[in-house]
Amino acid sequence: MKKKILPFSVIIIFGIIFFIFYKGLEDSKIYTPDVNTKKEIPVFNTKEFFSGENVKSSSIFELDKVYLLNIWSSWCVPCRQEHPLLMNLNLENKLNIIGMNYKDNLKNAENFLKELGNPYKEIFIDLDGTIAIEWGAYGVPESFLIYKNEIIKKYIGPLNQQLIDEMSLLIK
């Protein structure tokens, strides 16, 4: 009897290992931080994009409005792709789009906006990328849906029409 327990348990253990590897094959291994948990927005001080004046985060976000914070940069190619979508979204006037200019040359950034239009209600700058980290972002573009000083949802990478539709549902 004892002699049979060992082989069986070994086989069962390897069976389980097989199953786990099999399951593990299914999903992607590229890590993305959690995008759904609600978080308070961070507190930070920075400069306004056009005027260069100091601004505080508390003066940008009001409690009863819905905001979309968009991290962008003139050197980022996907930002160019998503920009028309932001322009449309701004026309719909359902939410306020705030821009965060990430590690950019201000001249280039201004030209970028001149060329493609400015969908942002307000823009502030993040020269060394540290504010982006406060937000828990790690690249450009990223967008955050904000209501009552809370991040409701995070969008990593360029937005597309589907995500924007989803956003409209969330706002309701």
Partner: peptide, 11 residues
């Protein structure tokens, strides 16, 4: 990490 991810989707 693979096992943990499969069993509890913690990364």
């Amino acid at each position: 990490p693979i096992f943990l991810d499969v069993i509890s989707s913690q990364k």
